[in-house]
Design a protein around this nucleic acid. Structure first.
Length: 550
RNA sequence: UGGGGUGUCGCCAAGCGGUAAGGCACCGGGUUUUGAUCCCGGCAUACGCAGGUUCGAAUCCUGCCACCCCAGCCA
């Protein structure tokens, strides 16, 4: 569909595999921690890792980074697998867990201890913090830093055996407490946690930290390129240090790229959690959320998400994509693939005064340019609904819809003329009395009348009442800040309308539609008779300024 | 006042010493039984700023400035 990306990461890989004595393998991994739901930012990483593996004829693992039993659960591993499959990446036989390597990790720790590169530190968490120094001042050595190897071995073995309570000891790397890189100030490698782990149960009471685990797992899986986000750049020296001091033979290269940012939403796990907990949204799959579950329920397609990631590119620059780009990707996918349907959002009754007291059934294509999608029956009768927005008493110049005395075509059907406007006590338009042109039927029009425009409609006798959920950006601000998050919520992020839909679409099983002239909608997978607006149609119509109101 | 990064059009993003790709957005025009789609055209004398090197610099050097990340036994 489009040519292969040439971002800086692929350029680096090209150089790596071009080395005369180097390996031609390219193996990557997507390493989520199973402690939350995936969002569109993760999609960028997924597309990158799996995309590269495929392009270079290698493979990618889905590896759950489950080293913290307190936060992780199977609920999330299932959700993450589901999201990956939905996005279009098949990882059935390449799913691993950091916890698969706990024994190997433990042996690596032993090796470091024997080489006197790691020591058991018995300082409390607070003491470790206090002796770490600050951004501008060096830390101070732990009093346990020079424990003899044998004592370290003994203590570490007993840590594993469960002889000590949480927090009593940790295993630390012996690097440099004066390093300007805080990550190198004797970082913690193992901590004691008497907690059940979602995968290994109670087999372990000591758990390795990310810095120790990640690089080793990468090496064990022969990952060649370990792609991660920018905040891990400072960890790369540690990543390399650990592997340099171990006798593993694989040497993965860590490369960092910037996260994907999207305007009018938030991506942090904490903030998303807050929105769910405080009931601002209805759940992790609320269609206003940037979670993959939310986007899926909204109706955003995997293709659109992959297209977005491709168009956004991969760099080290901080970025905030405009939601217009996402909307463009959605529309451009659905333009060709979504069947069309007629649906009315804000119904206004129309009575055809000269139409016989009977109904007829017209035929309309599901998609004008895609004849193979077939046609559907479209009921027509003397009473119809049109959208209130398609009628005005005083039309501005170039008004292409209905107004007193004007002609308009009902899409796929007849041309009608508005003869009379019925208003209620409060002046509100309640009904339009129109006449239809019998010889103007779509496809066999001999009326020679040129209507002002074309509008959508639904026959009253066959109209299916539906709930239309009109979604909009969750936050008013482009870059919502955690501090004022709640005040920034867009009160119109969800507007529910009760409209009518043509029966073929309402009762069929197709999931995505374009309601003509309105927008793209997705049949809600849970709520009956409910359609979520994925995105509106582009609308370049703007009334002349002076005549804006009607 | 430490370390690590990043600064090219409103938003993304190519560019890798030879004289600013592309996409989104936006603005015109054409086609159209969706004011949609589609098609055509426009849209950075300019690359954070200031110097320097060079015949030639967004690309090299120096110095500033701005923004992001780091002081979890989270990842």
């Amino acid at each position: 569909m489009a040519e292969r990306p040439t971002d800086f990461i692929r350029q680096q890989i090209d150089r790596d595999i071009a080395k005369p004595d180097g390996s031609k393998d390219v193996i990557t991994r997507f390493p989520p921690e199973p402690n939350g739901y995936l969002h569109i930012g993760h999609a960028k990483s997924i597309c990158l890792n799996f995309g590269i593996a495929e392009e270079y004829g290698g493979h990618a693992y889905l590896r759950f980074d489950d080293t913290n039993p307190l936060a992780e659960s199977d609920e999330y591993v299932d959700a993450i697998k589901r999201d990956l499959a939905w996005l279009g990446f098949d990882v059935a036989n390449r799913v691993t867990f950091a916890s698969d390597y706990f024994e190997a990790l433990y042996n690596c720790a032993l090796e470091l201890i024997r080489k006197d590169k790691a020591f058991v530190c018995s300082l409390s968490q607070d003491e470790i913090r206090a002796t770490r120094g600050t951004l501008t001042e060096p830390g101070t050595d732990s009093p346990y830093r020079n424990r003899p190897v044998e004592e370290n071995l003994d203590l570490f073995t007993r840590m594993r055996a469960g002889e000590f309570p949480d927090g009593a000891h940790v295993l630390r790397a012996r690097i440099d407490m004066a390093s300007p890189n805080l990550n190198m100030r004797d970082p913690v490698l193992y901590r004691i946690r008497h907690a059940a782990h979602h995968n290994v149960g109670k087999a372990w009471v000591i758990y390795p930290t990310y810095d120790f685990t990640h690089c080793i797992c990468d090496a064990l899986e022969n990952i060649t390129h370990s792609l991660c986000t920018l905040e891990f750049e400072d960890h790369r020296p540690l990543y390399d240090w650990v592997l340099d001091n171990l006798s593993l033979n694989a040497r993965p290269r860590q490369i960092e790229f910037s996260r994907l940012g999207l305007e009018h939403t938030v991506m942090s796990k904490r903030l998303l959690q807050q929105l769910v907990t405080e009931g601002v949204v209805e759940g992790w799959d609320d269609p206003r959320l940037p979670t993959l579950a939310g986007l899926r329920r909204r109706g955003v397609t995997p293709r659109a998400i992959r297209d977005l990631c491709r168009r956004a590119g991969v760099t080290k620059q901080d970025n905030q994509l405009e939601i217009e780009l996402l909307e463009f990707c959605v529309r451009s996918d659905l333009e060709d693939s979504a069947p069309r349907a007629l649906g009315v959002v804000k119904p206004l009754k129309v009575r055809l005064t000269n139409y016989p007291q009977s109904n007829e059934t017209l035929q309309a294509p599901w998609h004008q340019r895609e004849p193979e999608m077939g046609t559907r029956p479209l009921p027509f009768g003397p009473e119809l609904y049109i959208d209130r927005e398609d009628f005005t008493f005083s039309p501005p110049p170039k008004w292409k819809r209905l107004s007193p005395g004007s002609h308009v075509r009902l899409r796929y059907a007849y041309i009608i003329r508005c003869d009379e406007v019925v208003t209620g006590a409060d002046g509100e338009v309640t009904e339009l009395l129109c006449t239809y042109l019998p010889d103007s039927r779509s496809g066999s029009d001999t009326s020679r009348v040129k209507p002002a425009g074309v509008i959508h409609w639904v026959a009253a006798h066959a109209a299916e009442p539906v709930q239309l959920r009109l979604y909009d950006r969750l936050f008013r601000t482009r870059n919502p800040k955690g501090s004022s998050l709640m005040d920034d919520v867009n009160p119109a992020s969800l507007v529910t309308a009760f409209g009518f839909l043509e029966p073929a679409a309402a009762t069929g099983e197709q999931s995505h539609f374009q309601f003509e002239r309105v927008g793209y909608f997705h049949r809600d997978p849970i709520l009956p008779r409910t359609f979520n607006r994925i995105v509106s149609l582009r609308d370049s119509w703007r009334p002349p300024r002076a005549l804006k109101d009607s």
